[in-house]
C-alpha cells in the first residue's frame, strides 16, 4: 500500500470509530457512577432511527443528532426509573429495554427505510488539516468526529481533574461514604445515567447520519452496543483507554474488509462475527490481569507483566449494586 492509501485507511478508522467511541464514553461515565446501562444496543438503534427520521423531515442533520441524544437520555431515564427509583435489577431492566428499543426502532422506522436523507458533510479545519499525516487523518472530517475526539479529553479531564468528577467517582466506589460526606448519591447517579444516555444517543446519530447513512432493517449498527459495553471493561473504566479500544476495534473492522478480499472463499458473514471471539479473548486476559492472585512464576515474566499492567484497572466497587430505595 502507498502512503496516501495508508492515510485514507487511518482516516477511515478515525471516522468509523466515532459511534462506538461515543457509546463507550457515555457508558464509562454511567458506570463510573455505579450504574450499568445494559440497553446500549437497542438505544443506539432507536437513536439512529430517530436521528435519520428527524433529519429527513427537517432536512437538518444537526436537529437529527439533537433528537437522537434526547432519545438516548430518555431510554437511560427508563433505566434510572426502574433501577434507581423502583430498585429493580439493572441488568434485567437494561436487557428488556435493549430488545424493546430495537423492536420499537424497526416498527416506527419502517416508513423511513431505504430513503435518502441528509448526512453530515466534511468540514476540514483550516490550518490543522494542512499538517502532514495528522491533518488528513484527524482534521478532515465532519463536526461529529471532532466532537467525539474532543469528548475523550473532556471526559477524562472531567472525571479525573475536577471536583465534580471526584464526587462522581466517590458515588461509584462507595455511595454510603459519599452520602456521609453530604452528597446525594441517587441524584448524582441519575445525572450521570442521563448524561451517559445522551452520549449513547449521539452514537446512534453518528451511525445513521454518516458511518452507515440511512435506515433499514437491519441497519448495520446491530451488535455495536454490546461491543461498546465490552470496551468499557477493556478500558478498565478509563475514558482514554476505552477510546483506544474503540480505535483498535475500528482498525480491526477495516482490516477485516481487506482480509475478505484476500480469502474470498470464506463467506462474508463469518468475518462479521470475528470481533466477538476477540472480545471474549480480551476479557479473559483482563480478568486474569485483574485477579488479585496471579501465580508467582508468571509475575517474573516481563512481557506478561507489561501486558498485565496495560489491562489493570478495577471496576467501580458499587457497580450494579443499587442503594435500596429509602435505605439512607
Amino acid at each position: 500500500m502507498s502512503g496516501s492509501e495508508w492515510l485514507l485507511l487511518f482516516s477511515g478508522v478515525v471516522a468509523g470509530a466515532t459511534p462506538i467511541l461515543l457509546a463507550a464514553l457515555g457508558e464509562t461515565l454511567t458506570e463510573k457512577a455505579g450504574v450499568i446501562n445494559l440497553s446500549l444496543d437497542g438505544t443506539i438503534l432507536l437513536a439512529a432511527m430517530v436521528a435519520f427520521a428527524v433529519a429527513f423531515e427537517t432536512q437538518s442533520a444537526f436537529l437529527g443528532c439533537i433528537a437522537a441524544c434526547l432519545v438516548g437520555a430518555l431510554v437511560a431515564a427508563a433505566v434510572g426509573l426502574f433501577s434507581l427509583k423502583l430498585g429493580q435489577s439493572q441488568v434485567a431492566v437494561g436487557f428488556v429495554l435493549t430488545l424493546t428499543a430495537r423492536d420499537l426502532a424497526y416498527f416506527l422506522g419502517n416508513p423511513y427505510a431505504r430513503l435518502h436523507g441528509p448526512q453530515f458533510s466534511s468540514v476540514p479545519i483550516p490550518i490543522l488539516s494542512d499538517i502532514p499525516v495528522l491533518g488528513p487523518v484527524l482534521f478532515q472530517h465532519n463536526w461529529m468526529v471532532y466532537a467525539g475526539l474532543g469528548m475523550i479529553v473532556l471526559c477524562w479531564a472531567y472525571i479525573y481533574r475536577t471536583p465534580m468528577g471526584l464526587r462522581l467517582r466517590a458515588v461509584g466506589e462507595d455511595p454510603r461514604a459519599a452520602f456521609a460526606r453530604g452528597e446525594n448519591p441517587v441524584r448524582l447517579q441519575w445525572i450521570y445515567t442521563l448524561c451517559g444516555g445522551f452520549l449513547v444517543g449521539a452514537a446512534g446519530a453518528a451511525f445513521s447520519l454518516f458511518v452507515k447513512p440511512g435506515w433499514g432493517r437491519p441497519q448495520g449498527a446491530e451488535g455495536t452496543g454490546w461491543i461498546a459495553l465490552a470496551l468499557v471493561i477493556f478500558g478498565g473504566w478509563h475514558p482514554m483507554r476505552a477510546a483506544a479500544g474503540a480505535y483498535l476495534f475500528s482498525f480491526l473492522q477495516v482490516l477485516g474488509i481487506y482480509f475478505q478480499g484476500w480469502i474470498p472463499t470464506v463467506p462474508a458473514q463469518v468475518f462479521q462475527v470475528a470481533p466477538f471471539p476477540l472480545m471474549i479473548f480480551t476479557l479473559l486476559i483482563i480478568a486474569y490481569a485483574q485477579r488479585t492472585t496471579i501465580p508467582r512464576e508468571d509475575r517474573h515474566r516481563l512481557r506478561l507483566k507489561a501486558l498485565l499492567e496495560v489491562f489493570s484497572g478495577a471496576a467501580p466497587s458499587a457497580l450494579g449494586k443499587p442503594l435500596r430505595p429509602g435505605s439512607l
Binding site: F82, V96, D103, Y106
Partner: peptide, 30 residues
C-alpha cells in the same frame, strides 16, 4: 416488530408491578 414492542412493554410493566408490590420489602439481588 410490533409483537416485540408489546412483549417488551409487558415485561417492563411486570417489573414495575413487582417493584410496587414489594415496596417495603428487600429489593432482589442482581
Amino acid at each position: 416488530s410490533l409483537a416485540g414492542v408489546i412483549q417488551g412493554a409487558w415485561v417492563l410493566a411486570a417489573l414495575a408491578a413487582v417493584a410496587w408490590l414489594r415496596k417495603e420489602g428487600r429489593p432482589e439481588e442482581a
